[in-house]
Amino acid sequence: TEVDLHLGDITIKLKDVSEEIVKRAKELFKNGWSAEFVKKWIEEAVK
């Protein structure tokens, strides 16, 4: 499945990412993480 994760003005296309990771990524962004950091976190999380 593909998900578009909207973080501010940046959209990250996610492939084969669990709902849990998407939820967590949104929380991290809301908590002040930059979109770049969230993207890196996701990449690490799906390895």
Rank of each mutant, 00 (worst) to 15 (best):
T1E: 13
T1N: 14
T1V: 13
E2D: 12
V3Q: 10
V3S: 07
D4G: 05
D4W: 10
L5P: 02
H6S: 08
H6D: 09
H6I: 15
L7M: 07
G8R: 03
G8S: 03
G8Y: 03
G8V: 03
G8I: 04
D9W: 04
D9T: 10
I10K: 05
I10E: 10
I10R: 04
I10H: 07
I10V: 12
I12G: 03
K13M: 12
L14E: 01
L14D: 02
L14N: 02
L14S: 02
L14F: 06
K15P: 05
K15A: 07
K15W: 14
D16L: 05
D16T: 04
D16S: 06
D16V: 05
V17T: 04
S18V: 05
E19K: 06
E19F: 10
E20M: 11
E20P: 04
E20G: 08
I21A: 02
I21E: 01
I21L: 09
I21R: 01
V22Y: 14
V22G: 02
K23E: 13
K23D: 12
R24N: 05
R24P: 00
R24L: 10
A25W: 02
A25Y: 01
K26M: 15
K26E: 09
E27C: 13
E27R: 07
L28S: 01
L28C: 03
L28V: 01
L28R: 01
L28P: 00
L28Q: 01
F29K: 01
F29D: 00
F29N: 01
F29S: 02
K30F: 10
K30C: 06
N31W: 14
N31K: 12
G32M: 02
G32L: 02
S34R: 05
S34A: 08
S34V: 04
A35E: 04
A35Q: 05
A35M: 05
A35V: 13
A35H: 05
E36V: 08
F37E: 12
F37T: 10
F37I: 09
V38M: 02
K39C: 10
K39S: 10
K39P: 00
K40M: 11
K40R: 13
K40A: 14
W41F: 08
W41C: 01
W41T: 00
I42T: 02
I42S: 00
I42C: 03
I42L: 10
E43I: 15
E43M: 15
E44D: 13
V46F: 06
V46A: 06
